[in-house]
Nucleic acid binder design. Structure first.
Lengths: 267, 267
DNA sequence: CAGTGGTCTAGACCACATG
DNA sequence: ATGTGGTCTAGACCACTGG
């Protein structure tokens, strides 16, 4: 930075530099490779933007252009007044549909933690009402939880349970923060996934804060419905993940056989 | 802006203006609402950045901050040297796993088009080889296609078929661009989805160009494997969608029954 | 060629978090 | 009080596209 010696400081490119990259892209790649190589470890603070300006001999805006791309990808998270940090690189967790959350994660040797953010009772809204097949305006228990994988906030989840089915919810849930316990206590020994929907979206301010992402960061959203053995809908669940933190695996419905027909030009 | 009259020009806020929004956020919301209200119709060109600067009485960077957010969300697409355009707002298409692509779309009254971008034969790579259960280095037919929904590029898809299974591929496919035709011709009258995987990612330069997105725009990626009735893997498919253009629907595997156990604190 | 968006400079003020 | 990131100004040059 102070020395312009290009041999000792490869980040500064001179007129004969072989690099024809945009300055911001050069910075992007430099920082990205340092993150991936663990040269900038997970959770560590980057040099301040001003320091990066000196190091790369550019103005703040150019540095910020690079930092922005890395934030967008979830590799960095900026905290105003504090600094820019390397986000614990979320490996891509495989979630197989229908398996219990904890089984998916622990099977791969990762640890799971849970923080219950809130439990409230509300009148059900239109969409969950339809999914749960309960009357409009009936009561649901709304449980918002943050799942931590290897101590990193990774999955923000909001479950809605028909309140009349679980009169003892609070007492049972309080013991071990386990929804399965609640089910068992109310006579539900087995349940199954009725439907799962996956779509994409962008982090609200609240989601970004809880998951440690930048506002507007892209997310994967999942909505699912569980039913018990007789077929009563017992849970509507809404969750979001950092875009690249998860891969959903859906084993094929083996009964779904296609009969290719000749009616359309495209299959 | 020539006139500072706030009554006639609500985009210019004065010292007593009620708005305490960031300038860029104000511009973002103004443009967004004009897009959503069809005041700026799909496909239309926005005023140039310079014109927007005048209208909102800010510098180009502030306008660009707003445009950038809208591009990120897939509402706008900028073409260098030409202008910024309203991306045909992708409604969220519901794709039910296991159904044929065209059936998903046409059932909702939308039209489907197909452009075959390339057909090549290659030695299979590691991942598709494992998915297809074919030997490393064996031959696959690689078909890259762009699916248009209501004439908008919406789904970029790359299929790999074991070449030995489909010796007459080219002749049959050429007739109607139909992979189903190819299957039928080779004696496969029915097939099924073996597995689907959903994850997120970011558009490469090529993907962005083909789908009409900005480079680095967030995507939903799907990988799936089909097998025929006896269970032979016949197709490995890799696709991507603009993040908010699709909702994947997975009907529950009804055989997947959970037995909640008491071993873990969290379910 | 003129107009567009993509990029960059060199400043500046602010809100915020921390010591 | 200091340093941080968030935002904004007022310029500038470039590559690209289109007429």
């Amino acid at each position: 930075m102070e020395s312009l010696d290009e041999v000792e400081n490869p980040d500064v490119i001179g007129s004969h530099g072989a690099s024809d990259l945009s300055p911001w892209l050069r910075i992007y790649r430099a920082l990205r490779s340092e993150i991936l190589s663990d040269d900038l470890p997970s959770g560590s603070r980057l040099p301040s933007e001003k320091q990066l300006c000196d190091r790369f001999s550019v103005t703040r805006m150019t540095v910020r252009r690079a930092l922005q791309a890395l934030q967008q990808e979830g590799m960095l998270i900026a905290r105003k007044g504090v600094g820019v940090f390397v986000r614990r690189t979320p490996p891509c967790y495989q979630i197989t549909d229908g398996n219990r959350f904890i089984d998916n994660i622990t099977a791969a040797g990762d640890t799971v933690g849970t923080t219950t953010l809130s439990i409230v009772r509300e009148r059900v809204l239109a969409e969950p009402a339809e999914a749960l097949k309960v009357p409009r305006g009936s009561r649901v228990i709304v449980i918002t939880r943050l799942r931590l994988i290897n101590n990193e906030p990774t999955f923000l989840n909001c479950k809605q349970l028909p309140a009349p089915l679980f009169p003892d919810f609070d007492a049972v849930y309080a013991k071990r923060q386990s929804v399965d316990d609640v089910y068992r206590h109310h006579g539900i020994d087995s349940y199954r996934r009725r439907e799962t929907r996956i779509t994409g979206g962008f982090a609200t301010e609240e989601e970004a804060r809880i998951l440690g992402l930048s506002v507007g960061a892209p997310l994967l959203r999942s909505r699912s419905v569980n039913e018990d053995d007789p077929g009563t809908r017992i849970e509507y669940s809404n969750g979001c993940w950092p875009l690249t933190a998860v891969e959903f695996v859906f084993p094929g419905p083996s009964e779904n056989i296609h009969q290719p027909n000749g009616s359309g030009v495209q299959e």
